[in-house]
Design a protein around this nucleic acid. Structure first.
Lengths: 255, 255
DNA sequence: CGCGTCGTTGACACGGCTCAAGCTTAGTGG
DNA sequence: CCACTAAGCTTGAGCCGTGTCAACGACGCG
């Protein structure tokens, strides 16, 4: 069955219409959107959704997939080396965008569902934001563009983590990133959130071995910086964690 | 004085008008450009150029700099941790674009000149490609967009390097990336190119210590995969190097 | 000629990896 | 309801890749 962790709210699932919330919330924070644009987003999330189970492949490496929005569930971009080593390049959370409108380059990494996911067709959004008008002219265009730029910021954070931080610092940094992103989507509180990831997935994201992730998590527990059990994280000492990770919040849009 | 390595062609420097070549060549490869668009690029490169010496700061961390094109010289995007650790997030080569048109997010990393550099104002190019028309409608728009997407591909390569490759593999991979990018700009042959970087800079890019970069370079020399002296690289066994690095060429545009 | 930057080398320490085993939990079928 | 199983988590021992510290050499510039 599906991981129960996915919707910690309970077994009855989210109320109808709630699918649009993460995307609306996120894009609405990146730029101010008109009611028509909000409606267009809601429409996209109400439309026929693509559903994949955990471990499902959203698109393979080298593909040029149509734009989609992640409505619920967790996914990642992942690259594999010839000998089987895997690196998770980025996590994809509810409200994130996956493909790009053509013209695009063949994606250098595959996208994989980490939990059950629901995907909405984002083609109409990109058409309105990028194709019909210059991206600077509509609120939707600015929001989509800001989402792209934010993704690049996250990639650079990931480079710094992997290049210059210790295992302990990497974990702290990743937890803070995920918390902030989930909060933007309305899926995290100030100190806690659901983390439906195995330690193996964390290892592939942090460039570490599973064993070492485990030891690092335990150390962080012993230091009373976090609690982590049953797919739930609680950040006990946010300031200490930020200082360990050298974390600065992901910036928003600026004209 | 300036590093002689910069223009290995000779002391008399490039012929007049040659400044536009890397940018024209690169953008022209990413999308087919009209004569008017080629002229606009040439015009931008002829216009008043900003010059910085090696180690000069192109823009600080957190800035939102106007779009510029790197006309000659090498630069990088770099991020520093509170305790002084440095990570080079990306190298910037002739023909690369640096800022983004507003709306933009505050850059999470500073841009630094690694040699003497010349920068052209790319505002008119972005205006024509992004602001006045949707980016899909003009060749220039498609080229600029492809350049952005390519940068993202390079970032993901960097993540994989740092996350899952050994020092030896990282070096191999970086050399192949630089060779291909320089060739696109018309600055590398099939097997050799100028590499005006100290081992300390390589270390900051590869997430290694200077000492270990040195040992790794030497090992690669002993293995007769490369030659590297006086800022010149020669790839002795391209196929072997590709296989070590698990390298695949940077993709071009696809509709 | 002296100084600074960069490259090189050796000795040693340590963070993180591998291998291997045991444990816990949840799902599955009888 | 209870084995049985598979996946995930935990722990220990030992090794290896890479970092640190320190010194020296090579080169170019003033």
């Amino acid at each position: 069955m599906l991981p129960v962790r996915l919707h910690p709210g309970g077994s009855e699932g989210p109320p109808p219409g709630a699918e649009a919330q993460p995307l609306q919330r996120r894009l609405g924070r990146l730029a101010s959107l008109s009611p028509a644009e909000m409606a267009m987003i809601a429409e996209a999330c109400r439309g026929p959704l693509r559903e994949l189970p955990a471990r499902g492949e959203i698109h393979p490496e080298g593909a040029c997939p149509p734009p989609a929005a992640l409505v619920s569930g967790w996914a990642c971009r992942i690259r594999m080396l010839a000998d089987g080593r895997r690196q998770i390049v980025a996590f994809l959370l509810p409200g994130d965008l996956i493909g790009r409108p053509p013209p695009c380059l063949p994606a250098p990494c595959a996208a994989l569902a980490l939990t059950r996911v629901l995907l909405a067709d984002a083609q109409p959004l990109f058409a309105a934001g990028f194709t019909e008008h210059p991206p600077t002219q509509t609120g939707l265009g600015r929001a989509l563009r800001a989402a792209e730029l934010q993704e690049e910021v996250l990639l650079r954070d990931q480079v710094v983590r992997l290049g210059r931080q210790t295992a302990y610092e990497r974990l702290a940094s990743l937890l803070l990133e995920l918390r902030q992103r989930l909060e933007t989507a309305g899926l995290a509180q100030q100190r806690g959130f659901a983390l439906p990831l195995t330690q193996e997935v964390l290892a592939d994201a942090l460039g570490l071995s599973v064993v070492h992730v485990n030891r690092t998590v335990q150390q962080m527990r012993r230091d009373r910086l976090i609690e982590l059990r049953g797919g739930q994280v609680i950040i006990l000492q946010p300031e200490a964690l930020r200082s360990v990770a050298d974390w600065q919040d992901i910036p928003g849009l600026r004209d």
